[in-house]
Structure formats: structure tokens, C-alpha cells
Design a protein around this nucleic acid. Structure first.
Lengths: 213, 213
DNA sequence: AAACATGCTGTAATAATATGA
DNA sequence: ATCATATTATTACAGCATGTT
């Protein structure tokens, strides 16, 4: 059994069942004798929106087949021999096709996932940036308040100086640092984001970096 | 007999114009006859680690061809008839193949780009989150300081009350809001991120959301 | 028991085909 | 015709299981 492993199986035999079922019409693909003058191939298949389906060499699987495969794929992306053969028999396909279909499906799924993850990450990023801006704003505001408060303390301290004998303030307030426009006490990232913009320094737009190989 | 068992010969009846040019690329490496005589498919071809080029079946453009195409692609992703025909002639390919190659190349490039953009965005996001955490920390610190400052002001004010006639403080300090653990004066996002964690609430790990079709 | 061949499954990259804009 | 996309198919190579020297 397992004709798949038979060394002498010709590819035509191997794929005969595959192609014959999709090639109801031999497709007038001109032979080699056809002169290369001009562009012989390239027929212009017109719309025929109403489900033309005329004399096409269709290798596409039927919707029913795809549905079944899709359903199977949904339950498990992996494909064991058992399932493969069962599916193949169930829809009259070559087990090989089922395997190929699954492989391609996984690849497709992977791209889709990446796309989805990108969108997700993008949303999170935008959210984070927005939040960061608000924090930035809040921070500036607080620093203003703090400066003002310290000025006030300074004032009050000076005023009370004339009366009391400089009672040691329990809290340690010293005008120390804090006067400059404070770029955030971390100096983090230089100037980036100090100005609260949507952070479009880098362009997230599609088609900006046209140099990836 | 070779021509009889060669799968490509059979296939080339379908795609005569396309495949015939690849057949003459046997790559004088391995005993081709052994391969051809054996099963036409399911070639295992182990490692061949030091050998480098295995005996390419058919298909697959030669490295030289790919290099040329690649170079051409680098200068411009688009392909005009002119260039297409020139390239085709230059490397002995069917113009059709050149066109196909470019289309596939563009598609490949696109996914590569998406991947790259994802990594880029990821890095930016992580950076932003980190920065946000620092801002968060700084903010908490500032709020503490402010609270303390206000307590100080309160203290000083009360003290000086006994001496002066309540000189109106130029600045408007009123203990108003600010006592609660202040979740950020925006209430933004509820509790999220108040605790400064790497923000792994959502899992960025690959293979968590196995439900994308 | 170890080394090795075989065969299957999977992933990645690619070629080719089909369609629609 | 060209391009973008979606599909189907191939090739090559990797890992694992099993059968053979």
C-alpha cells in the first residue's frame, strides 16, 4: 500500500486525480509550436460577474471542501495522518492536497495573526502615548504648583523669621534643584516627548520606509 | 527513459513555455541518474552540509538570475514592460516569469515590512511604557512633595497667624483636592498602570490568541 | 546499543495561477 | 497590460520515530 512511496510513480499518475478533477476542460493552452510572436498567452478573461466559470482550468477547491477543511483547521491547526486521510477520503482529495492545504493555511494564519497583533500593539501604543502625554502635563502642572508652594514657604519662612527663632521645619525643604525647566528628573530620552505631541516623530504611516531589502 | 519518467516533462506539457528553460539546470553535482531513476518525488536529500548547492530539481531560478532580479527590484519595485523584457532576455527567462517574480517579491517585501514595523513599534512601545512608568513614579514623588509642602505652608501660616494680620498669600494655595491617593487627575484608564508594571496585562507573547480565524 | 537510513510531519521560501481593480 | 491578493503547489531542509545494519 501507500502508493505515495512507490518510487516508480510518475508525477502524472501521482497528481492525475488531483488535476483531472479540476480540469474539466483542457484549456486551449496553445502548444509549443505556437509562435512567440506577440504575447500568445494571457487571455483576457472578462468579468462575467454572474459566476462565469467557463472554460477555466480551475485548481481551486470547492467551497464545500474548503468549508470542511476550514472547520477541521478550526478544531486543530495540526494535522495527523489519521485526520488527513479521513478528510481526503471524505472530500475526494489527495491526502497530499490536504496536507498542503493545511500548511498553507497555517502560513496564512500566521500572517493574519501578525497583522492582528500589529493593530493591537498599535492601539496599545497610542493609548500609552496618550497616557504618557497626560502624565507629562500633569507633571508640569505639579511642578509649577510645587515651585509656587516653595516660594510660598520661602515667603512665609522669611516673614516668620522676624518673630520666631527659626524653628526647624520638620520637613526638609530646600530650594535645591527644581528651578530649571526640569526636563524630567531622568533626562530620559533627551528631548523626546517633553513636548506633548502624538509622537509622530517616526511615521507610522504605511509606506515610509521603503528600504527593507 | 529519462524523459519518460521526468515529472517536469509531463508538467511541461502544461507549462511548456515556462518550464523548458529550467530543465537544463541539472547542476553537475550529484548522480542525477540516481535521483531520476528513483522516486520522482519525496526526495530526502540529507544535509550535504559542506556541499553547498544540492542538485536543484527544476524550478527555482539560478542564483545569478535571482541576483539580477534582486538588484533590479532594489532600484525599483515597479516593473515596466520595457524593463521586464530586457531582464527576461538578459537572463533567458520568460517575461512572464519576470513579472511573476516581481509580484511575488513585492508581496514578500510587504510582509517583511510588516514584520519590521512590528518590531519597531514594539520597541517604541516598550520604551514608551518604561518612560510612562518613570513619569508615574516621578509624579507620585512630586505629589508627596507637594503634600508635604502644603502641610508646611499650613504650619507656617498657622504660626504666622499669631503675629501678622493674615496677609493674603499671593498664590492661591488651598488644600482643596489632593489628599486621596490621587489616581492621577484624569482618572484615565481606571486602575491600569497605576502600579508600575511592565504592562503585561495583555500578553504580547506569540501564541496566546489562537482564535484569529 | 549506536550509527544510519527511511519516511513522515512541519516550517519557510518560492513559483505559478486566478481574479479583481 | 500592471499590480495586489489569494490560492495552490513545490522544493528544501529540520526534527522525530522507526526500522536496519
Amino acid at each position: 500500500m501507500n502508493s505515495e512511496n512507490d518510487p516508480m510513480v510518475l508525477i502524472s499518475e501521482y497528481y492525475s486525480d488531483v488535476y483531472t478533477q479540476f480540469v474539466p476542460v483542457p484549456l486551449p493552452q496553445q502548444g509549443v509550436e505556437e509562435v512567440m510572436a506577440g504575447k500568445p498567452r494571457r487571455r483576457r478573461r472578462k468579468k462575467e460577474s454572474g459566476g462565469g466559470e467557463g472554460e477555466m482550468r480551475k485548481r481551486k477547491l470547492s467551497e464545500a471542501q474548503v468549508n470542511l477543511l476550514e472547520r477541521s483547521f478550526g478544531s486543530d491547526h495540526k494535522l495527523e495522518s489519521e485526520r488527513k486521510d479521513r478528510l481526503a477520503a471524505e472530500m475526494g482529495l489527495d491526502p497530499r492536497q490536504v496536507a498542503v492545504w493545511f500548511q498553507n493555511r497555517r502560513a496564512r494564519w500566521k500572517s493574519k495573526k501578525l497583522e492582528a497583533e500589529y493593530s493591537k500593539l498599535k492601539a496599545e501604543h497610542d493609548n500609552a502615548v496618550l497616557h504618557k502625554c497626560r502624565l507629562q502635563t500633569e507633571l508640569l502642572d505639579l511642578k509649577d504648583q510645587l515651585n509656587e508652594a516653595r516660594r510660598e514657604i520661602q515667603r512665609l519662612s522669611e516673614r516668620s523669621e522676624g518673630f520666631s527663632s527659626n524653628s526647624p521645619t520638620s520637613s526638609s525643604f530646600s530650594m535645591e534643584h527644581m528651578d530649571p525647566p526640569f526636563l524630567g528628573e531622568f533626562g530620559f530620552e533627551g528631548l523626546e516627548n517633553v513636548i506633548c505631541m502624538p509622537e509622530n516623530n517616526y511615521d507610522n504611516e504605511w509606506g515610509s520606509l521603503y528600504n527593507y531589502m
